[in-house]
Computed example of a mutant assay.
Amino acid sequence: MSKRLLMLEKMTRDGSKDPFHWYALALEYAGQGRHDDALATFGALRAIDPSYVPMYLMCGTMLVKAGRLDEGRAWLADGIVVARGKGDQHALSELQQALAGAGGDDDEP
Rank of each mutant, 00 (worst) to 15 (best):
A91D: 06
Q89N: 10
A47D: 13
D107V: 10
S16E: 07
G85M: 10
S16D: 06
G67M: 09
E28A: 14
Q32N: 12
L92F: 07
L45I: 03
Y23D: 01
K65R: 14
K17D: 10
G31W: 01
G101Y: 05
P109H: 13
L63R: 01
A91P: 00
Q89L: 10
E9D: 08
H35R: 11
Q97M: 13
Q89D: 13
G15E: 09
S2P: 05
F42Y: 06
H21N: 15
Y56S: 05
A40S: 12
A66W: 02
W75C: 10
G104H: 07
A83I: 08
R46Q: 14
V81N: 12
T41P: 03
D36A: 14
E108H: 09
D107Q: 15
D36H: 09
G60R: 06
D37C: 03
G33T: 10
G15V: 11
D105Y: 02
K17V: 15
R13N: 05
R34W: 04
A38Y: 01
Q96W: 00
A44S: 14
L45H: 03
A91E: 09
M7Q: 14
G79T: 09
E9I: 13
T41A: 08
C59V: 05
I80D: 02
S93K: 13
D105P: 00
S51C: 08
E71C: 09
L6T: 12
A44V: 11
G104F: 04
D49W: 02
R73K: 15
T61P: 01
D70F: 00
L57V: 02
L76D: 04
M7K: 14
T12N: 07
R34G: 04
D70W: 00
E94H: 13
Y52R: 08
T41R: 06
Y29W: 10
E71N: 12
Y29A: 10
I48L: 15
G33E: 09
L45W: 00
K3Y: 10
V81P: 01
K10Q: 11
M7F: 08
E71Y: 03
P50F: 07
I48R: 05
L45G: 02
Q96P: 00
L99H: 04
L39E: 11
Y23C: 03
D14T: 08
R73S: 03
I80Y: 02
R73A: 07
I48D: 00
A77H: 04
L5G: 04
E71G: 13
W75Q: 15
D49K: 13
G43H: 06
D106F: 06
G67C: 09
P50T: 11
T12S: 07
D37S: 11
L95H: 04
Q89G: 08
K10W: 02
K17I: 12
A66V: 07
L57S: 04
R34I: 05
I80V: 13
A74R: 15
R73D: 03
D78C: 07
K65Y: 00
R46D: 06
I80L: 12
E108L: 12
M7P: 00
R73E: 03
D105G: 06
D106G: 03
M58V: 11
D106P: 10
R13E: 06
L95S: 07
A44K: 14
R73F: 01
L99S: 08
G87K: 09
A40Q: 12
L6R: 14
G15W: 06
D37L: 13
K86Q: 15
A24D: 14
